[in-house]
Amino acid sequence: MTTTQADVPPLHHGPAIAAPRRRRLHISRASLRAYAPAVVLLALCLLVTLANPSFIETRNLIRVANAAAVPLTLAMGTTFIILIGSIDLSAEGAVAVAAMVVVLLAKNDLNGMDLGWGAALLAVCAAGLMGLISGLVQTGLRIPSFMATLGTWFIGLGLATYMLGGSAVRLMDPRLRFLALGRFGGLPVAVWVALAAFAVAAVIQTQTRLGRHILALGGGEDLAEYSGISPARVRILAFTLAGLFYGVAGVLAATQLGQSNAVIGDGRLFAAITAVVVGGTALTGGEGGVFNTLIGVLIVTVLSNGMVLLGISPYVQQTVQGLMIIAAVALSLDRLRLKIVK
């Protein structure tokens, strides 16, 4: 977390107007503040464990990891987009398209296709292509990412509905089902895939030029442009990258459920953005990163797992979740760095 912020200090140029009034809210030292989301996560785990000790059992921790696999992969993509200061609403559409492609091209109960891993690869590529289109459309037509991706969301959803003919098609390929059902070192393979996605995202963010440019763009697009970065190019690459992550998430979701229908992505978009923000990444861009998102995804997953473990009535779960998320963000946001909260 600290390394990502250390990369960009010169690019943060907002005057510190709001900060002085808020200072009394922060008792801890600035260096500790960066770890605030992790502290919130630990506190949450502690709280749930006290109420129901079976939370801490290995079996349950594995289940939490499994439940976090798809959201984590998805949120990796979302993180890069939010780091630029843009927003990507196409996640659910891209997940639906990827799940549709993998199911229709692998062994299924609708047609005679049987491409195996090739189907998974093509599914990821299809979602990546959607991301590329989102990027090209918004930079080419110069329209806000919000609208470009809202459009591609609908288009993706429509394509998935059309191709599946409205039905839920079952995935019968045992090699692909192995992603969800197989285990390696005690963990479901899906968790390893998600961890690999996380590792790739971390390398891209910290070790590549694209990663640095994404942060620079979010820190201040005009400044980034003066220093020779092409915002359009970075934007197109970032949206393509996000699409690829959505594609992996879509494949994982299809293998977990053993089927695909067009609504397989339902509800995942806002969950992913919430996780990113809870982790401490700023929606205005330039602050935070994939490490924050890992914590954010875990906070959100532990929260929903914990509510079931605590036996909280479904009638109040939504309210509790809303309040907890406000609390988590309020506690973990590094407001000294975020001069402007939008």
Binding site: N60, N66, A253, L257, Q259, V263, N305, V308, L309
Partner: peptide, 19 residues
């Protein structure tokens, strides 16, 4: 409740198994 959705029921079931 899982709001009629397979995905929500999937995560819910694994939490219920723990409990």
């Amino acid at each position: 409740v899982a709001n009629w959705k397979a995905t929500e029921a999937y995560d819910l079931t694994s939490s219920l198994l723990t409990r």
